[in-house]
Amino acid sequence: MGVLGDPADTLDAAVIGRQTSLSTFGSRTRANLASTIIIIALVPLAVMAGLPFIWIYISSFKTDMEIFSPTLVWFPSTFYYDGYIYVWEETALVRGYANSILVSGASVTLSVFTSVLAGYLFAKKDFWGKTPLFIFVLSTLMVPFFAIFIPSFVVYSKFLNLKDTYIALILPHMFTAFGILITRQFLHSIPNELIDSATVDGAGDWRVLWHIILPLSRSILAAIAIIQFLGVFNEFLWPLVMTDRAELYTLPVVLRRVYGQGSAMAGSNRILAAGVVAVTPIVIFFLIFQRQIVKGISLTGMKA
């Protein structure tokens, strides 16, 4: 079967593994052995993927002395949880979390709503200037964030006077060209007869939208919501320049503060505790909604 770890062999075995489940060609035991080898060969890579998580979980219970001992301390000798007390009492982490959830939640709600409105508009309505408007909306996908970053900052802070408001953090995500594109593609597949029959029955656009389009496009809207949520929750640079008041800091901005205090050796335990507190809800959230997240990204990922 060749040497374990050789990429060509791994690939070879991978393809065989796929086919055994569906055909009776070839030797079953050989293929089973091959797929077992692949599963084992991926373990080191998976360990690398999980290591940063595991390591802060373990290390957050170490004292600063243990963390920076000249010889590596693999496991904490005592269950030292002072870092967590510090995070709870002294940092704005919880507030940052609340802010991030508020901003992401509002952005997601708004953008899903506008996606279905605009998606319906472009998929099922005919009006003067439709194609140019659609191309215009799509063209915004080509503009990198940095190209509009500085004027946006000037507009929001100087002209709209929105610095240090939640609106400044939500407004840029009110519409998403990506979501509009995906919804439009999806709504194209809904037969016109469905809409026409409702229209004949006297339903207006808003009622069609609410009673027919919305229920049908639930899965695609969920996918958009997930992607949008991950994006807004991760956002750092925009909230960084838009917020001066600590009460408005989102989680990434708070974490930057916490991380910045850690250049000195003291307080590392606290930083790690902050890391654990920050990442745990995300891990739990991910494990609960894993299927939806993976499905959502595979539904929409390629169409981007």
Partner: peptide, 18 residues
């Protein structure tokens, strides 16, 4: 997929230590 959903700033915190 866990790293994909982990915000950059948390990754920064973890890797700064790692």
């Amino acid at each position: 997929f866990l790293p994909v959903v982990t915000p950059w700033l948390i990754a920064v915190l973890m890797f700064g230590y790692l």
